[in-house]
């Protein structure tokens, strides 16, 4: 019976682990404009990526956007998750579908929606003009703000669903008992609901942060040509640049930066949770 695990394990090993080992090896190769990739064992791609001000800026932008979006997602997602978790069961099914639907239709479709909303002739500018709040169109699309709104919207369902699962496991009686003993709504929230849902906040933030760091379609479509995040920069090296060793090094820098910050973040959160 144990052999039943083999086909799936072999498949994941061949199509994920082996390719990543190969990518790691390629990141140590040398690139020459005439011969493209030359077999070597050098850290030059990593050094170039870390030293180049352009890529420093790209990484800084990516980190900034990921932090901001994660914080926004927690602040917006918590009330939504609480609302979803404490809902009556027959309406809850519909609300869950409405939370899952945007997640499952894909990033490209949602980016298209934001383009239609944020464009100069788009929904938001048309509404502002109809209300006589603005005279000319506001530049909303192709701005960093558009990317932040777009990514926050993309990752929000993950946070809401993760938090809702944790909040659901908090017995209502705990809240009711605190309220009966005279705690105000905000005290119940601060002293009962929030401490008990911190593991969910940690898990949700980690998941969302990883997704933000690696966002591809949203920054590409909503950010405009000047705005660069890491994931599109990695693909550029493979599609346009043909500099595979450098692209591979960028991919690993992105992976390591994501992992290190995720580990630090969840350690800090879990320490607070225990204390």
């Amino acid at each position: 019976m144990a052999a039943l695990v083999l086909p799936a394990a072999l498949l994941v090993f061949t199509l994920l682990v082996a390719p990543m080992a190969l990518l790691a090896r390629i990141s140590l190769n040398h690139y020459s404009p005439t011969e493209l990739m030359v077999e070597a064992f050098t850290a030059e791609n990593y050094i170039r990526a870390v030293a180049d001000p352009y890529y420093q800026q790209v990484l800084a932008t990516t980190l900034g956007v990921a932090f901001l979006c994660t914080v926004l997602t927690v602040l917006l997602g918590f009330p939504a998750a609480y609302w979803l978790a404490r809902m009556e069961s027959n309406r809850k099914s519909i609300a869950t579908i409405l939370t899952l639907l945007p997640l499952l239709v894909g990033n490209v479709v949602r980016s298209a929606g934001w383009m239609a909303l944020l464009g100069n002739e788009g929904g938001i500018n048309a509404a502002l003009r109809a209300l006589h709040l603005t005279s000319g169109p506001l530049q909303l699309l192709y701005t960093p703000g558009a990317v932040i709104v777009g990514i926050t919207a993309v990752v929000l369902p993950y946070m809401v669903l993760t938090l809702a699962a944790v909040i659901e496991s908090i017995p209502r009686q705990a809240e009711e008992a605190a309220a009966n003993l005279g705690a105000t709504a905000s005290t119940v929230f601060r002293r009962v609901v929030l401490p008990l849902s911190l593991p969910g906040v940690a898990a949700g933030s980690v998941l969302v942060f990883i997704l933000c760091m690696n966002a591809y379609a949203t920054p590409l479509l909503l950010g405009g040509p000047q705005f660069k995040m890491m994931a599109p920069a990695v693909y550029d090296q493979f599609v346009r640049g043909n500099n595979w060793p450098f692209g591979a090094a960028l991919a690993f820098i992105l992976l390591v930066a994501t992992l290190v910050l995720t580990v630090i973040g969840s350690m800090a959160l879990s320490r607070r949770y225990r204390g």
Partner: peptide, 24 residues
């Protein structure tokens, strides 16, 4: 370890897995 391996495709960012698979 096997369980982690099988859930791996969810944990590795699509960009990294995508470029790695392309090279492979």
């Amino acid at each position: 370890a096997i369980s982690t391996l099988l859930l791996g495709p969810l944990a590795v960012p699509g960009v990294v897995a995508g470029t790695a698979l392309y090279m492979f």
